[in-house]
C-alpha cells in the first residue's frame, strides 16, 4: 500500500473502504503560504459518514489541509492552493462555487470554543444561518425555534440549556461552549463537519462528551477530525491519516493504523520515537 521512498504513487485511503461512497476527494493538493509549501501533492478520500482523523506532528500541514477542505485557507493573505478537492465529485475550487455557500455544506469547529460571548445561546446557534442569509426569507418563529432545538439536541447540549436559551454564550463552561459551536455548525445543516482539535482546550469529561457526540454525528455527517491526541484518534475515528512534512504517509482503518501501521514513519510517530 504505502511505505517505500519516492518516487512512488501517493498513498490514498485504502481499498477497504471502497464500498463506501467518497464524500470528499482530495486530489494532488498543494497548499502553502507564499513560497513556502505546507501541503504537498496530497491525495486522500474521505468516505461518506465516516470519521477521518488526521494526525501528525506540529507543522505537518494538518490544519492547512482541513482549511483547504472548506476554502478557509485562501482567506489568509499570501495563501496558495493547487490541485483539487471534490465534494460529491464537484471541485470546490471551480469558478462557479461560492465559498460562503460551500461553507454551509462543509462546516467547521475550531480548537478553542469561539461562541459570540455576549450573544445569547439561541442567537449563537442561529449565527451561521444569519451570516449566510438563510433566515432572510422571514421564516416563522416556530420553525426557527425548531432549528435551534434540533441543532442543540444534535450537539447534545439541549437538555443543559433549554431553560436558558437567552443566557449569554459566554456563560457556558468550556465543554458546553464547544458543543454550542458544534450546534452553530450543525444549524446550517452541513454535510461535512471539519473539527480542528476540538477538544484540546477541554477537560477529559468534556472531551468524552464531544467524542461521544462524534460517534452519534457520524450517522448523519462526514467528519474530518484533526487531533494531536493519538488516543483520541484511536477512540473516535474510523480512518486515520498520518501526515508528515505536508505529505500523506499513510491512511488506513484506525484499528489497523494503531496496531499495525505499514510505514516505519507512522510507527515511529505513534509510538513516540520522533525527533
Amino acid at each position: 500500500m504505502i511505505a517505500a521512498p519516492a518516487p512512488r504513487a501517493p498513498p490514498t485511503t485504502t481499498a477497504a473502504d471502497a464500498t463506501t461512497p467518497v464524500k470528499l476527494a482530495v486530489r494532488a493538493l498543494d497548499a502553502g503560504f507564499g513560497a513556502t509549501p505546507v501541503v504537498r501533492q496530497l491525495t486522500l478520500d474521505v468516505p461518506e459518514r465516516r470519521v477521518l482523523a488526521i494526525i501528525g506532528p506540529s507543522g505537518c500541514g494538518k490544519s492547512t489541509l482541513v482549511r483547504c477542505l472548506n476554502r478557509m485557507h485562501e482567506l489568509v493573505p499570501g495563501a496558495t492552493v493547487g490541485g483539487s478537492v471534490l465534494l460529491d465529485d464537484h471541485d470546490i475550487y471551480a469558478r462557479d462555487v461560492d465559498p460562503v455557500l460551500l461553507r454551509r455544506r462543509i462546516g467547521m469547529v475550531f480548537q478553542k470554543p469561539n461562541p459570540f460571548p455576549t450573544m445569547s445561546i439561541r442567537e449563537n446557534v442561529l449565527a451561521g444561518l444569519r451570516l449566510t442569509g438563510a433566515l432572510r426569507g422571514g421564516r416563522k418563529q416556530p420553525a426557527i425555534d425548531g432549528i435551534v432545538e434540533q441543532a442543540l439536541t444534535r450537539a447534545a447540549l439541549w437538555d443543559e440549556v433549554k431553560d436558558r436559551l437567552a443566557a449569554a454564550g459566554g456563560s457556558l463552561s468550556g465543554g458546553q461552549q464547544q458543543r454550542l459551536c458544534i450546534a452553530r455548525a450543525l444549524a446550517v445543516e452541513p454535510e461535512v463537519l471539519l473539527m480542528d482539535e476540538p477538544c484540546s482546550a477541554l477537560d477529559p469529561i468534556a472531551t468524552a462528551r464531544i467524542e461521544d457526540l462524534i460517534h452519534v454525528l457520524r450517522e448523519r455527517y462526514t467528519i474530518v477530525l484533526v487531533t494531536h491526541n493519538m488516543q483520541q484518534a484511536a477512540r473516535a475515528s474510523d480512518l486515520t491519516a498520518f501526515l508528515l512534512h505536508g505529505e500523506l504517509i499513510e491512511c488506513a482503518p484506525t484499528e489497523r493504523l494503531f496496531t499495525q501501521p505499514s510505514d516505519r514513519r507512522t510507527e515511529d510517530y505513534i509510538t513516540g520515537k520522533f525527533g
Binding site: M230, F258, T259
Partner: peptide
C-alpha cells in the same frame, strides 16, 4: 503509557 502499534503488540 497507552502503548500503540509495535509497543501495543
Amino acid at each position: 503509557r497507552q502503548p500503540l502499534a509495535g509497543d501495543l503488540r
